[in-house]
């Protein structure tokens, strides 16, 4: 069973609906036991980085999440659930993340481009990440964020996106996948990604 982790942040209903539409059954849960038992983990999230970390801590969900990742359960982080995997973020002062991926989260530089980066942008795949199967490289996905992640090792980057700067729009390592964009809001391509994720073992 796919567990969508509910820690009080984010629009879980649309993620749940999208999995359903993609033909994959999922449950929304904040129960540590249920997270431990799940076959697949999904960590969504919107809002501020530090607040999301606080909620994760207070709900006691960090341990089962890290354990699941370590045991190689298919894991999907979305938007803030992607940023939280990194070592730290500079949003509202410096805050520690889950440090599953070495690197940091920074604000888009001041310049000509509008921040937040809102809308549909192209995602260029670096290799053959299994969740992208059947989706053409350079497909459009929906983004909505002001901060972007910089992994220490480029090898984890599963896709690049260009917004004034070229940034890592998703990462992939073993069974861990996480993306800055919102597959649950990205129509056909997004649903395909969720279907692919649900099919990982």
């Amino acid at each position: 069973m796919i567990a969508i982790i509910d820690y009080g942040m984010g629009n879980l209903r649309s993620v749940h609906n999208a999995f359903k539409k993609a033909g994959r059954e999922a449950v929304i849960t904040s129960d540590r036991e249920a997270v431990s038992r799940a076959s697949h983990l999904v960590l969504p999230g919107v809002g501020a980085f530090s607040e999301c970390m606080d909620h994760l801590r207070s709900t006691g969900l960090i341990a089962p999440i890290l354990e699941g990742i370590q045991r190689g359960k298919p894991f999907l982080g979305i938007c803030l659930g992607f940023q939280l995997l990194f070592s730290k973020s500079e949003e509202f002062g410096e805050h520690q993340g889950l440090d599953v991926i070495s690197g940091e989260v920074k604000k888009f530089p001041d310049g000509k481009l509008k921040v937040p980066h809102i809308g549909w942008n192209q995602v260029r795949f670096t290799g053959s990440c299994p969740v992208f199967k059947g989706i053409p490289s350079d497909a459009y996905f929906y983004f909505d964020h002001s901060y972007y992640a910089i992994p220490e090792k480029e090898g984890v980057t599963a896709s690049w996106t260009d917004y004034g700067i070229k940034f890592t729009s998703s990462v992939w390592r073993d069974n861990l996948f996480a993306c800055q964009f919102h597959p649950e809001k990205s129509q056909t391509s997004g649903l395909k990604l969720l279907e692919n994720f649900g099919g990982l073992t």
Binding site: N17, A18, K185, S186
Partner: peptide, 29 residues
């Protein structure tokens, strides 16, 4: 929001944090 997988904005009569919460829980982005 159960059928459409693209961003959805709702407006009109949003006056309190509770109105926002209800909108988001209903599936608005």
């Amino acid at each position: 929001s159960a059928e459409i997988f693209m961003p959805l904005t709702v407006g009109g009569g949003i006056r309190s944090p509770d109105d926002i919460r209800k909108s988001l829980l209903a599936g608005a982005d």
